[in-house]
Write a protein that binds this DNA or RNA. Structure first.
Lengths: 354, 354
DNA sequence: ATGAAAGCGCTAACAA
DNA sequence: TTGTTAGCGCTTTCAT
């Protein structure tokens, strides 16, 4: 394994005093500032928050005192006294997978613009107990609201465990009627890609599915709908994991089958893996097999052949989710649904059947 | 562009009362619980925190009251009274790029295990003003400490703006002596990959660099060291952006040059782009040009040819960073440095020169 | 084991 | 414009 070394790299002289060495000095409080500036505590508070006007000279003295003492307001006290919290928790099973991280990024961008911070709460397993435990821990923190990423069963469990007497927004997944929700119309999108492949001349389309959030994910449902509407046979769903390597394995297995000419993959990582596995097995893409992905991963355009895929605007999804949260934060309790439709990006991995 | 629809999806009957419809009801406090349970406030606190023993019957009554009222402790009040905060801010310029998100994931995992939550603070531009503003905002929140991702100039600025009278840990970048820091030995790693290519028989190695954190990043320095030590000529550094597409452009340009037989890329996305560009330009990898990457991106093994790369343990880096934070949180002010060495993963994208 | 009292650092309501 | 007085909801002494 990797070597890891750990070593002290210096003892700054200001910490040489043994009485100081074990903890950080107690920070200056608003009272200290008031004393140094020769004003009352609320006056300091007023220059800090701008809640009320302060005469120029006092304001100046306060500012100097703050500078001199290196004063920083205590967030906990502020939150307690004002009743306003600035943290939005994002509860999710994942932070690294493309769709998740891009969505979180969108939430963060919108939250920051509104003066809020995003707190990450990862819940690993989709059991009711773990969801409840995570919710209890999270709600014990000073939070303004919670956004749940419901791309998978973990999100479903978390949302079930969450009391609805505080601002809650769900992202993606099945639409519920009691919570504001930002979603992508994956059913329609799944139908659209499948239709695209059918229109290219393929007799049917095989589907490699991502792990579903409940019974079946929207992409899979859309795929089935399109096939049935076209009177095409509906082949059994092939299940993959979130990992690209599972796509490789499936691709190798598919390479020897003459009956598969078009494959719709539940996401781009799987599609890229599938293409690799297919070519490992001697099948050419798109000449022998057409492959389309889902999401428009940053590497989809760099892949060879360029991956045709359904572009999902995850950052936009995240921003819309925060938009719904912002409404709740303002006191508007109306439950609203924000939907957007993914768009096909045509590159080179799909074409007419051989 | 994408269609976005937004619509109300229901007005739950319990909110029909107009007096309730514009805000959430005031939550139960510990005093309410005490009243219902017929005990004192501190007793409720004791069953909540476990700070002191409580008789079984009172504990039971308290638990029932909590359940009945749907009581949840107020995090801000708790933080203020106890002086203990549970949030660790991670200040970074990015959350989606592989190295960043994998590191944050490692921090989160370790933090969660220790009962802490990660707050994301994104700083977009590497100016002193923006860094100071971001620091001011972040430090106005109830935080236990701050971890700075110093992969780039933004991190450098943020660290400069950060007062050191609270727990601060830096991740990666140049080693400073006044802050605990978790790093990967990128200089050594850069030397190692370059050496690997040289040993394969290449006369020299070209380098496509990622945006550097200050003057030059460690990977580039290591590359130069190896070349100089071997007496090889040092070609000019080729600069790329974080984007894989920049690798494609560079690859196309490089495809027509006979003098480049080996290229060391600053990260895997660029390497994948480079391979795509090279093959677009008619050059074969590794027959005509050997390419190695850096990081071991999740798709590196799925790429064709499989990408030879320096594997960086980002989640481990994040965990080590939190480990240093945990020491500071316990009051140990010793400034320590934790270093680990990336390891070469040999796949198929590099070989002997033609 | 339990309660009374004090106080964490700040903002809000009220006078002046 | 400013200061005084009260809390915010919890934890922490300190008695008992």
């Amino acid at each position: 394994m990797t070597d890891i070394s750990e070593s002290p790299i210096g003892h700054p002289s200001q910490y040489a005093d043994p009485t100081m060495s074990r903890s950080f000095a107690k920070p200056a409080s608003i009272g200290d500032v008031a004393k140094v500036a020769g004003v009352s505590v609320p006056t300091v508070s007023r220059v800090l928050t701008g809640a009320a006007p302060v005469s120029p000279d006092k304001r100046q003295r306060v500012l100097e005192a703050i500078e001199e003492l290196g004063y920083r307001p205590n967030g906990a006290a502020r939150a307690l006294a004002s009743g306003k919290q600035k943290f939005i928790a994002v509860m999710t099973s994942e932070t690294s997978i493309f769709g998740y991280s891009a969505t979180i990024q969108g939430i963060e961008t919108a939250a920051r613009a509104a003066g809020y911070f995003v707190v990450i709460s990862v819940v690993e397993s989709p059991t009711a107990e773990e969801a409840e435990q995570a919710v209890r821990l999270v709600l014990g923190q000073p939070l303004a609201g919670v956004i749940v990423l419901k791309f998978d069963p973990v999100g479903v469990r978390v949302l079930e465990a969450l009391p609805l007497d505080l601002p809650v927004v769900a992202v993606s997944g099945e639409v519920a009627s009691d919570v504001s929700q930002a979603v992508l119309d994956e059913v329609q999108a799944g139908t659209d890609v499948t239709r695209y492949l059918l229109d290219l001349g393929h007799e049917t389309v095989h589907h490699v599915a991502i792990p579903p959030s409940r019974e079946e994910d929207g992409r899979t449902i859309g795929w089935r709908n399109a096939l049935e509407a076209a009177g095409a046979i509906v082949p059994p769903v092939i299940s993959a994991t979130w990992d690209a390597a599972s796509g490789v394995r499936i691709g190798r297995a598919l390479a020897i089958r003459r009956d598969v000419t078009a494959v719709f993959c539940g996401n781009d990582e799987i599609a890229m893996g599938l293409i690799a596995g297919l070519s490992d097995g001697g099948a050419r893409v798109p000449e022998d097999v057409s492959v389309v992905g889902f999401d428009d991963h940053p590497l989809a355009g760099v892949w060879r052949p360029g991956l045709t895929t359904m572009a999902q605007d995850f950052p936009g999804l995240g921003r819309r989710a925060f938009g719904l949260m912002a409404k709740l934060l303002e006191g508007d309790r109306e439950v609203t649904l924000s939907t957007s439709l993914p768009e096909l990006v045509v590159r080179a991995s799909a074409g007419p059947p051989r």
